[in-house]
Design a protein around this nucleic acid. Structure first.
Lengths: 148, 148
DNA sequence: ATCGCTGCAAAAATTTTGCAGGTAA
DNA sequence: TTACCTGCAAAATTTTTGCAGCGAT
């Protein structure tokens, strides 16, 4: 491990990992660094491709993403193509947001609008379900792809 | 093919298939019959399991679902577990709706509420995207599972 | 008689798991 | 030292594809 880099991240990571008696390892830091440098959800394969060869095994990425998701350090998204994508959850944020994805070039915009809370509450009351959450993604054709 | 069953369905299928110079085959009718008998989205594997052995190959189901989706006869849904699910689109309906899924027992409720059209329009205007649609699914714990 | 469709088999793509050795705490 | 973690390899899932023969039109 390089003790001089990403101290601020390291302390956050340390704290969260130690809470669960997990270890701060080089592969985990490398993965978090990749996620930090990308604004949009990445597939495990994309994370693997970006990392220097030999820095982290693909299986380790899968295992790490599961762990990071259970610790609420990353948020999983599904764009409907059958491949999981992950985005780093910022501090003080719950990671809940949505995307607008171009169906032609796969460009991704982050969306601040969200499903109205009132409707979600009504839904929970009507159905008797509890702890109701939702996943919402938008799809369309971006300006660049409209002429083609 | 059994000429005495599901005549009403057959004529609908015939018409749509013939429009694309596709053929009305036993496997395709069998698949549509399964979908018609189930109110909720099914995975290809589930469809395969329900069909009598030897009635339809799994690969044929995959091929059929792609075709039926492109013909807008089925709607694809993603429940976030990495497996595609399909539901029959009723006549006169565009198939656009959502579900409330129990994260413990996988019970599925159909939801009539939808993301407000006005917000979707605003989203399209703000972003410059066109043909904007959305996918929305709700997750929670159903009444039966709340005590456990 | 076409042309499309099917079953079978193989391959591709994504994700999970077992295990022996290595490393953080 | 002791758990936990990693790489490697193998397996499990889900989905796609090639091909020869069959079948709807």
């Amino acid at each position: 491990m390089k003790p001089h880099v990403h101290q601020e991240r390291l302390s956050e990571l340390n704290e969260k990992l130690r809470q669960k008696s997990r270890k701060v390892t080089a592969p985990r830091q490398a993965i978090l660094d990749v996620l930090r440098k990308h604004r949009h959800p990445l597939t495990n394969k994309e994370i693997f491709a970006v990392l220097p060869p030999g820095e982290c095994d693909l299986a380790t990425i899968y295992r790490s993403m599961h762990m990071l998701e259970s610790m609420r350090m990353v948020q999983r998204f599904d764009f409907g193509d059958g491949t999981a994508r992950y985005e780093l959850i910022c501090e003080g944020d719950d990671g809940h947001h949505h995307h607008l994805i171009c169906t032609r070039c796969s460009e991704v915009l982050e969306i601040e609008d969200c499903f109205p809370v009132a409707l979600e509450k009504k839904l929970a009351e009507d159905s008797g379900f509890k702890f109701v959450t939702h996943k919402l993604e938008f799809f369309g054709v971006c300006p660049k792809c409209q002429g083609k």
